[in-house]
């Protein structure tokens, strides 16, 4: 039974059972918190609208690009460089391939 679950990594072993237990524990705590919430809010009124500093927005939605905005902004210098490499010009791709070809030849033959 033990062997069907555990992975042996050379150093030691790892068993997902502990993590399943931890996940279930976290989930039950979350469920408990959710059950403690109030339920009597009125649908279709302002009570459903998220509170954004008292401002009313047309479409209060956080798109994927808003999330981790600072994270993406901090990586922007690297990202712009990488994006110029992925230029879309097929000659550049062939050029990169020639580079890899040269590197592999140098490595294997010399």
């Amino acid at each position: 039974m033990e062997e069907t679950i555990k992975i042996f990594t050379g150093h030691g072993h790892w068993s997902p059972l502990i993590w399943v237990a931890a996940a279930l524990g976290t989930f039950s705590v979350a469920l408990l918190l959710w059950l403690l919430g109030r339920r009597e809010h009125k649908r279709g009124t302002d009570q459903e609208i998220p509170f954004l500093s008292g401002e009313r927005m047309e479409e209060p939605r956080v798109s994927a690009l808003h999330l981790y905005w600072g994270f993406a902004e901090a990586l922007k210098p690297i990202l712009t460089r990488l994006k110029t490499w992925h230029s879309g010009v097929v000659n550049d791709y062939a050029g990169w391939f020639l580079l890899i070809l040269a590197v592999v030849f140098l490595l294997v033959i010399v």
């Binding site: 890899i100 592999v104 033959i109």
Partner: peptide
Amino acid sequence: RIALALFLSGLLMKVAAAPV
């Protein structure tokens, strides 16, 4: 060795290893 280099570079492209 030359054959190995040709196999290696051809397949590295097909497996989508950066920078190809």
